[in-house]
Amino acid sequence: MSIEKFISQPPLIVHSSLSQLRYLVLSEGLSDEDHQRTRSHVWSILSRASLEKCTQEYLRLVQLGAPPSNWISKIKNDTFRTLSTDEKFRNKVTESQLIRVLSCFAWDVLDSNQTHELPGLSPYVQGMNVLLAPFLYVCPTEPIAYKLFHSLCFQMIPTYLNQSLSGVHVAAKLLDKCLKIIDPKLSKFLTDNLLTAEIFGIPSILTLSACNKPLDQVIKLWDFMFAYGFHMNILFIVAQLVINRQAIMVSSSPMNLLRETPSINADEIITLGVGFLAKLPDTLYTNLVDHLTDESITMSNHL
């Protein structure tokens, strides 16, 4: 409620107001009862994604129809099973919405790849459907969801979605490093079982934990990450591991536990994850921050 009021007042100084908003999200959080519109607005503010003319842009892309066949087939191969176990999501978001927005994104990427050589995002990668799911779940309309999704992909985590998914692999390395620092015992257990982040952590990394359930808890994680950065996703993954470490370490087949993660508790994860921050060295934290947008991190991490 207070957040809703807060964002409805034009900020005098955007920078400081953003800090205030972040802190509000951290301290109070966005309740589930809040109108979905508020959350999408908050997300747009925090991600600095202007929704102006988003509908116009979206319609332009929708007019293009289905993207080239190889992409649409990939999209349709995944969309039908997107969060298929989450009933609330299924009730709210249809597959056609997913297809539509992903198609638009594919068109947009194809389009932008022609003009700019720079980002080189992939029109579609597996997991994008899951990445999109929270937006469609939260946002009142597709254009807004598309715009926020677009903003996330192009500006927040472009390295995760480039042709080689380089950022994801870097994130896996970072995840291993963070786990090793935060919970050396668990890290050793997993490496002894040949379970590196590259094996078990990719889905959570690429989808920014959206692959977890329930989606409502994921949304809360996202609230926090929109406020303080999606690099926190790595620490949240670590937090999940730490939370489940007992079960994992006694399990005969820990991989199944890692794959089928139990329902998450966003507050618990956030609290834990934020607690890890103090333990991380500055360089590692900088790498965490930069790896989302800087492809050059790849090199340094591999070293």
Partner: peptide, 25 residues
């Protein structure tokens, strides 16, 4: 890829809402 007029109305409505509410940001 066909968007109904109803959907469109909502699209623009929400966009306008956003612009009115948090456009100041």
């Amino acid at each position: 890829y066909q968007i109904t007029s109803k959907q469109l109305e909502k699209f623009y409505h929400e966009e306008n809402k956003w612009s009115r509410k948090v456009g100041g940001w």
